[in-house]
Structures are given as C-alpha cells and as structure tokens.
Design a protein around this nucleic acid. Sequence first.
RNA 1: GGGGGCGUAGCUCAAUUGGUUAGAGUACCGGACUGUCGAUCCGGUGGUUGCGGGUUCGAGUCCCGUCGCCCUCGCCA
Length: 601
Amino acid sequence: MAEWQRTHTCGELRQTHIGQTVVLNGWVNSYRAYNDQVFVDLRDRYGLTQVVFESDQAELFAAAGDIRNEWVLSVRGKVRERLPGKHNPKLATGDIELVADALHILNRCPPPPFEVMSIPLETGFGDPELAGEDLRLQYRYLDLRRPTLQRTLSLRHRLNKVIRDYLDFQGFLELETPLLGRSTPEGARDYLVPSRIWRDEKTGRPHWYALPQSPQLYKQLLMVAGYDKYFQIARCLRDEDLRADRQPEFTQLDLEMSFVEVNDVLVLIEGLIAEIFQRCAGVTIPLPLPRLGYEEVMLKYGSDKPDWRFGLEIAELSDLATQTTFKIFQEAISSGGKVRGLNVVGGAEKFSRKGIDQLTEFVGRLGAKGLAWIKVEADKFTSPIEKFLPADAQAALRQRLKAGTGDLLLIVAGQEEIVCQSLGALRTHLATTLGLIDSARRDFQAAWIIDFPSFIWDAEEKRWAANHHPFTAPRDEDLPLLESEPAKVRAKAYDLVINGYEVGGGSIRIHNPEVQARIFAVLGMAPEQARQRFGFLLDALKYGAPPHGGIALGLDRLTMILSGTTNIRDVIAFPKNQKARDLMTGAPAAVDPKQLRELGL
RNA sequence: GGGGGCGUAGCUCAAUUGGUUAGAGUACCGGACUGUCGAUCCGGUGGUUGCGGGUUCGAGUCCCGUCGCCCUCGCCA
C-alpha cells in the first residue's frame, strides 16, 4: 500500500481510535488558518474530519497554509481527543481530530465556479447559497461531490438493492432486453438510431432502430417463452417534452408475471413498496394499500394521481345547481356538464378580493370559464352569486361542503373534464400556497388507482383510443359492453400513486386472440392493420401465451419521494435539462460529416 | 407550439417613481489573530447589468426583438 493511501475514511474515526496513527484521503471542505494552527475539514462521501496542522512542525505548517478548497489531500497523523469544550456535536467525528504529521497534496483545484462546501448541521449537511442549477449541471462532477447529492445517490443504490433482494427472494429472474429495437406505432415519440448496414432500396436512406420507450413488448414475449416471473431495472427513452418529474431517459422497475390476476400483482408490489419504505426511509407503510376507483378519485380529487396528504376534497354540487337561480350553473348542467366545488377551511380571511382574482386566473388558464366563490359567515354568505342562492340552496351547500364560519367555498361549473382538471390543479395550488404540505413530515400516502376506463374518446380523430395500451385486458364482466358501450368498459389496469406522483402503472394483458381482435375493432383497427403494426406480438400470443400481467415502477420518481425533492434532476447522476440538453457534455451536438455519410444521411 | 417566471461581480443577491461613481455577503489576493469549526477583524482585486435595437437630457429599471434557464398546458398508449 502506498504511504498516501487511506487507512480510514473521513466519517470513521471515533474516540476508540485515539492514539492511533492513521491516513485520511479526501477533499478540502473548508480551512481555517490561525496563528499557530491550520484547521482543514477533510471530506469524502463518508463524512468530515477535522485535521490540525500545528506550527511546531514549521515546514508542514507552511505547506498547510497554502491549502485551498477542493484540493485532494492525503494526511497522515495521530488521532487525538479534542480539547475540553472543543468537541463539535455537529460532526459524527466531532470528538476527535487528526494532528497531521505528513501531507501529500494529491491534486490542487482552482477556485471552483461555485461553492461546493457543505455546512455541518445537527441534522446532517446543509448547502450555503446553492448556485443556480444550470451552472451546477455544467460542473456536475463538482455538484455531485456535495453530501446532499451523495446521500440521494446512495439512497438510489439502496432502492435498487432492496428491489433485487425482494424479487430474487420471490423467485423472479432479472433478464435483459434490447436497447436497439423496432419502432412501434402509438405511444411516445421514439428516439431513433440509424442502421449503417440496412437501407431503403428506393430512397437509399437508412433503416432505423428505435430505443425502447419501455420493455413492454419484450416482457410479454418472455411470458410466452415461459419465464413466468421476470423483472428488469430498465432504462426507458421517450422523446417528449420534459417536466419537473420527467427526463428523456428514465429508469423503471419493469416486471411481468404469468398465471396471475390483478390482485396477485398488487399484493406483490405493495409488499415491495412496504419493504422499500422500511429499508430506505425507516417508514412503515400500512398494508394493504387502499384501492380507489378511477371515477371516485376523479370526482374527489380531480386527478387520476391525486395527492391526499391534505383535505380540500371536491364535492359534487350538480344536483344542487338546479336549486339555484344562477344561470351559469344551470347552463352547465343542461349542456351535460358538472358543478363541483371545494371548501378552503378558514380561507375567507386568507384570500382578499385580489387573492381570489388570482385563483380565478389560475383556473382560467386551465380552461375554466370562471370561479364562483363564497365567504361563509355565521348567518349568511358573502358572494357575488349570493343573490342567486335561495336559503335552501345555501343550507344544502353548507352541508355538502361541511362549511363553517370563516370558510371559503370555491366552485367551478362546466364540462366535466375541465371541472376536474381545474379543481384538481386548484387543490394542489392551494395546498402549496397555504403551506398544507409539510415535506419534513415524511408523510407517505400510497394507494392503488383501479378500474380505469379501457377507452377514451379521441374527439379530434373521432374514434375510440386505448387509454392504457391496446393489449390491456378489460374486466371480464365488462366484456359484453365492448361493442355496445365502450365508454363503460373498465380495464384490468392499475396505477400506484404516492403523494400525488404516478409512481407506477400496469395491467393484466389480453391473452385471448378473440378478445384482442374485438379490442382492435373497437379501436377502428382492421385486422391487417393490426397485423402490420404488432405482427410479431400477435403471432407470439397465438403460440400458447399464458395469462399474464405486470407493472412498471418509475424509480426516479420513487427516489424523489424517498429523498423529499420535487426535482427529478436531483436523483439522477447526470441528468438533462428541460430542453433535453446535457450541459456538461454539450449533447446533443453536431457530428462529423463522415459519420453521416456512412449512415447515408 | 401556448401561458407564467427569471437573467446584475466567479457564486448568492440588493439597487425607491427612470436620476450621482451599480452595492452587500461569499469566493479570490494581502495582512492581523493563542483552538477554529459557515472562524473573526482590517484592507484590496473583481461589472459589456444575457445579447441587439429603441424611447429619453438620462435606462439595471420602460418598449420591441433575440438567446438561455425554470415552472406549466399541449404531449408523455
């Protein structure tokens, strides 16, 4: 072992090491030069240790005086208990310090473009004046040095490990599927990779591989092949616009099982979720998870991935609308729409006229034509629509929305979709602005959303479209409705929702060719058309496909929830920005014309 | 493609209604200091106010355009 190589990490030394001569390697988190001492806090991913250089070793002391932030050092020295009263309770190593007797400067570092230093706190590490994200992304290797990100990536490792242990124990095989595949229609936009060898005969242009949006088709083929319990921690790629919780490449736990029904998948996965939260967060998730119907959550929360850590539940008011003389409500109902509202408990004082205007503007951007508001007082309503609300309607509203003095009622009327969307968004908006979500509470609310409709009407294309994907099995009792009332057919599909994030989704697949043919028919897809699009899968399903189903969990989002961030870039080592650029490498970038010529581009 | 927000020193931010030489903290450089720990104290370097144009006696501030970043709708079966 070279003399500069570490004997211990920077998070390891305790009082039991006092008197030992040790070597530490690490980065300079901070330094404090004093008359007769130079203090250097040495950092690695295990922790922080204070190193002292003392003036009685003149040469060493002089060298230590030049040390700057982020230099990489090797320090040999003797572990010493700190002076009485000089212990630092913020550090795990705070009872001791290392008195240096040798220093190797393994590498110097220019002043970094932003401060990497972390501040030891009683609760862990803090980041002073965190630099702008685009700068940190440009120097991601410096950003990743911060304990905050190192902790998140360690958590991610733990998550992967828990998943592999759990599924291995349950008898699953971890199998790999191709990255270079065939583009299939529908779904997200593919990332395409040109073939150097294969060309279109007529145009001379290359043929193309597609990078997988998910291993969906392959895992079904693995079921046909008899690998009845499969999983993979798989990278997925989708060329769509990004969000705070969406990256162009992301990671899913992809899983599929044969000879199962919905309940088998849900029980397996909620067991995994409980294991994950126990071992990654020390939190016990009570099982079984609630199973909520799609219709119910759309009504109560206005979203199919609701956050129910706070109240603000939406109530159906359509039946009361007829008791009012308010034209807008009545018109909404007579044109097939809905009137729904929610109660901001104690909100009457929190929102001025201007504040309510801002809420109106907020729902307006989501398509709502207006926002009716009522400030509830002991014996009356203060509201622009008060005069349209007879006494019995007022009483009914109070009861329906559980309204008391000082509450603020907010009501939207219109098409059901708009009402859901605007009130659903308003819920989370209000929760954020009123501070109803305390992320420090580590409150994890998980549930299944089930009974999704199999089809949604595509008004633009004037046809039924698959809500999930065209291989999702309908519920058996809804099969007779396939042709007559497609809107009423519910799918054997399920989403896992935690704290308002869609963490996963899956379904039981169709393994019966007749049912599959009827589904294609509903979707307006002729047999030859279906054959052209999904031929190899349809062939495979004919050759003895077992009943099967599965799920995919978004591991980036799960890590976000576990680590308490709302930014997906915080849980990925080398993420892309919102325009899908990698600010560190500069990808995407132009390539050599020679490369393009080889590809026929 | 649409909506919203932001862009000032290496970094984080301030700058009144459009008004003097654009400030502070931190980083960096120099000095002081008998134990610091986000050290402290003194001094110093550091600016094309994203870029281009316009209005004005005068623009960091107002207007137009453009670029970049973030949030969001569409999109993501």
